[in-house]
Design a protein around this nucleic acid. Structure first.
Length: 821
RNA sequence: GCCGAAGUGGCGGAACUGGUAUACGCGCAUGACUCAAAAUCAUGUGUUCUUAUGGACAUGGGGGUUCGAUUCCCCCCUUCGGCACCA
């Protein structure tokens, strides 16, 4: 026979067969229990990379395993097709973004099919198809009806390279998530989704997500950043107006010796007007405006400020305290105004020291006395309230509630909650995205595009340049329109939506991708949702995964989806690395999946990826490891091909050797089943199959023929291998005389009695150190085990001079003899 | 600074609720087959002492609990990830 199994021919043959027989096509079936297995869909960059391959290999094992276990499986694929790279490619290579994108999709589809993943290809979706993005626009309008969309002018994150604004989640450490340019601040009027209305739900429902890694939940929790405290009103000294602040420490209110406003705060100019500080303030604000986010971060330690000349009254002490403007107060959080308590807040402390503002201690620790003049840093711990009139002597932790209550009674404040989460800025000044369905009319103002006019088609006659501004604004045909209300001439919105809006509901579209009355068919969605297993990279912990949860909650409240959460279980796969580093073109350590598939076949590539490391961990690529996986598949092929005639044992021998074989078979089924189902430890599942194959080729009575357990061993070996290496499994299954696809078979059941070991290695320890091992029957009683241990020649010799204090017996495992030393 | 994850042979990694540390794979060594090579098969492979039998030491470091700790507790070190003036 040939040296190597013919993976090229086999994989082509089965991929063709799967396609012809539509084997992966799926329908809703209310009588069957379902599972929705989903991998994060790819951006069609044109080339499949190892991260994709790992993602889809993991998903396919889970999908196939569950299919064989009797579930109706939805396992779809599509493309997250809008996005900036298409425009960059357009500029660089002078191709239209649409052409570039769809070419890439065609390319990737071919590559994906070569992997042999069990996708229902009829459900493929492309987010840049009008049939899809129409419903994104529809959802935008529905969000608007539900008061979840608004337009406002505010300082926003601007990426100078991408020439567009970014949402907060899309800025990582002051840099653009996509191109890593330093993000600038700009004052612009933009569209927002009111994700903050859902802050509490998004936080609270994390509790429901038991199947999510804690890591991701904690990241989301931190991102939402809930803090509880109070809102306190401060009256201006010279007018009746008041400014409200948010604080988590109302117990320190008596210690507020100054007051701060964010530089962008609308009251700043007004307060300083006419005072000698007017010019200073104006200069200061101008300076801040030109500073980028990173400038502000880099000057982190040094806090700068400027006195406004105005005062507010501390509501509890009645003191007039000065209002300053400082760069460490953020307009976007709370009210943009802060009461400053230098004795008990480190930032306020530093600021007070720098500008010689009085420090007043109002919380004293229990073990020492603080003296404001000697303090080196703020005291932020708990303590006892002092200098606080009627609250003196109250522990600070109770003071929070007591002061808040008092403020409420006096009408000067109330309990309040604040979130770090900001509203989601969804406008993008880019071409290749979903047009925002809005029209501006001089008479009627902002007008929604009526539902019947959807979709607003993304025009193709647009020239992409790098000069900035929304490219759509250049298209006269697009921009000029008539107002749906008054029929007067009007202009279209020329910004497109953040592409993360497209990926926030695609999992719903898969449930009925051809639906044309609604974004998805409600029955289909309610049958399939939620996604039972979602698989993807950790990098989306607070991007996509937060947005998708938000969309699902909104749609739930709109009454079109039952699910409150989109993904019940989440598996975050690790990166594929080489030579200890992330694969990247610039480092030149990229391994091309296509090349691996061409050289060894998809089965080998998949097997290696799944075997080399558990899914959550990073995977170190190894060319030699791939060879090893290839060798293994060849061994399997050979061992089965060589024994194909011995499957039907005429003599049906049931001797001791046969018993051993059956034990091995059932033990392996058990191990593989549990490793896949309970732990996603595909690496150990595969190693169990390898051990099984090693044992088969070594000790088994395979080649003699006639044994009862041979057929059972071979058939089960193929079934166990099927989720990992489906092509070779199909081929071998057919070779054993089967007519029906291995994909449609039942996952093997194991017999507990057969899987249990008949014999065990009894470990004998003396004072916790292994001194002997005996092969004994597995069902020995504790007494018998102890007897065996004490009668071992070697043990006898070791303990003869010593006094035995105690004998510990662990049934089925070991005996530990404790001696006096 | 705060939060989180992880440190096991030459390498990727096993060890389920405390019970044989290093399964499986890679690499390496030796042998078989071969004119030779590749492929394949067999055997060995933590470190160290010892002729061998056997012993000692090993899961980042140091303590502790326990008959027994990679696993539980405390302290420290290193690496990686997230957040970073959020009042």
């Amino acid at each position: 026979m040939a040296d190597k199994y013919n993976f090229l021919e086999i994989e082509k043959k089965w991929q063709k067969k799967w396609e012809e027989t539509n084997i992966y096509k799926v329908f809703e079936n209310p009588d069957q229990k379902k599972k929705y297995i989903l991998e994060m869909f790819p951006y069609p960059s044109g080339e499949l990379h190892m991260g994709h391959m790992r993602n889809y290999s993991i998903g396919d094992v889970i999908a196939r395993f569950n299919k064989m276990n009797g579930y109706n499986i939805l396992h779809p694929i599509g493309y997250d097709a809008f996005g900036l790279p298409a425009e960059n490619a357009a500029i660089k290579n002078n191709v239209h973004p649409k052409k570039w994108t769809y070419n890439n999709i065609n390319n990737m589809r071919v590559q994906l099919k070569r992997l042999g993943i069990s996708y229902d290809w009829d459900r493929e979706i492309v987010t840049s198809d009008p049939e899809y993005y129409k419903w994104g626009q529809w959802l935008f309008l529905k969000f608007m009806e539900h008061d979840l969309v608004y337009r406002k002018e505010a300082p926003v994150n601007w990426c100078p390279a991408c020439q567009t604004v970014l949402a907060n989640e899309q800025v990582e450490g002051g840099r653009c998530w996509r191109c890593e340019s330093v993000v600038e601040s700009k004052q612009l009027e933009q569209w927002y989704f009111k994700i903050t209305s859902y802050a509490e739900d998004l936080l609270d429902d994390l509790k429901m997500l038991e199947g999510w890694p804690d890591r991701v939940k904690i990241m989301q929790q931190n991102w939402i950043g809930k803090s509880e405290g109070a809102e306190v009103d401060f009256k201006l000294a010279k007018s009746k107006e008041k400014i409200t602040v948010f604080t988590t420490r109302p117990d320190t209110l008596f210690g507020a010796t100054f007051f701060l406003l964010a530089p962008e705060h609308p009251l700043v100019d007004e307060l300083a007007a006419g005072t000698e500080y007017e010019k200073n303030i104006a200069d200061f604000r101008e300076k801040i405006k030109t500073e980028t986010e990173t400038d502000r971060i880099s000057s982190e330690i040094e806090k700068n400020g400027c006195f406004t000349g105005a005062y507010v009254i501390n509501p509890l002490t009645g003191d007039e305290i000065p209002i300053w403007v400082s760069d460490y107060v953020l307009m976007g959080y709370g009210t943009g105004a802060v009461m400053a308590v230098p004795a008990h807040d480190q930032r306020d402390f530093e600021f007070a020291r720098k500008y010689n503002i009085p420090i007043k201690v109002v919380i004293q620790p229990y073990d020492r006395i603080l003296n404001p003049d000697e303090m080196k840093e703020a005291y932020i711990e708990e303590g006892m309230m002092t200098n606080s009139e009627q609250f003196n002597g109250i522990p600070s932790i109770d003071g929070i509630r007591a002061v808040t209550k008092y403020l409420e009674k006096e009408g000067m404040g109330k309990l309040a909650v604040n979130y770090r989460l900001r509203d989601w800025l969804i406008s993008r000044q880019r071409y290749w995205g979903n047009p925002i369905p809005i029209i501006y009319c001089d008479n009627c103002g902002i007008v929604s595009v009526p539902e019947k006019d959807l979709p607003v088609i993304l025009p193709e006659d647009v020239v992409i340049t790098q000069k900035g501004g929304s490219p759509l604004a250049e298209s006269e045909n697009f921009v000029n329109t008539v107002c749906p209300k008054c029929s007067g001439s009007a202009r279209r919105e020329t910004d497109t939506m953040d592409t993360f809006t497209c990926s926030s509901w695609y999992f719903l579209r898969y449930t009925s991708p051809k639906e044309d009355k609604l974004p998805f068919n409600l029955n289909a969605a309610n049958y399939w949702m939620p996604v039972d297993q979602y698989i993807g990279g950790i990098e989306h912990a607070v991007l996509h995964l937060l947005y998708a949860r938000f969309f699902t909650k909104v749609m739930h409240d709109m009454g079109i989806v039952n699910a409150k959460e989109p993904f019940s279980n989440l598996l975050t796969q690790g990166m594929v690395i080489k030579d200890g580093q992330k694969m990247s073109k610039s480092k030149g350590n990229v391994v091309d999946p296509n090349q691996i598939i061409a050289d060894y076949g998809a089965d080998t590539a998949r097997l290696f990826i799944l075997f080399a490391s558990p899914p959550e961990r990073d995977l170190e690529w190894s060319d030699q490891g791939v060879e090893g996986s290839f060798r293994f598949l060849n061994r399997v092929y050979r061992i089965i091909a060589d024994n194909i005639n011995n499957l039907e044992g005429k003599e049906n021998i049931a001797d001791e050797e046969d018993e051993k074989l059956r034990h091995l078979t059932h033990k392996t089924i058990k191990k593989v089943t549990l490793d896949i189902a309970e732990r996603f430890n595909f690496n150990t599942a595969i190693s169990a199959i390898m051990e099984f194959v090693n044992a088969l080729s070594k000790h088994s009575p395979l080649d003699k023929g006639g044994h009862r357990g041979v057929k059972e061993a071979i058939k089960n070996l193929i079934l166990l291998l099927a989720p990992f290496a489906p092509h070779i499994a199909e081929e071998l299954w057919e070779m054993t005389g089967e007519k029906e696809s291995v994909y449609l078979q039942k996952w093997p059941k194991y017999d507990e009695d057969l899987a249990a070991a008949q014999e065990i290695t009894l470990v004998i320890q003396v004072n916790g150190k292994v001194r002997d091992r005996l092969l004994v029957s597995a069902d020995l009683s504790k007494e018998e085990m102890e007897e065996f241990a004490l009668n071992s020649e070697r043990i006898k010799k070791l303990i003869e001079e010593k006094e035995v204090l105690k004998v510990v017996v662990v049934p089925g495992k070991l005996v530990n003899i404790v001696c006096k030393v």
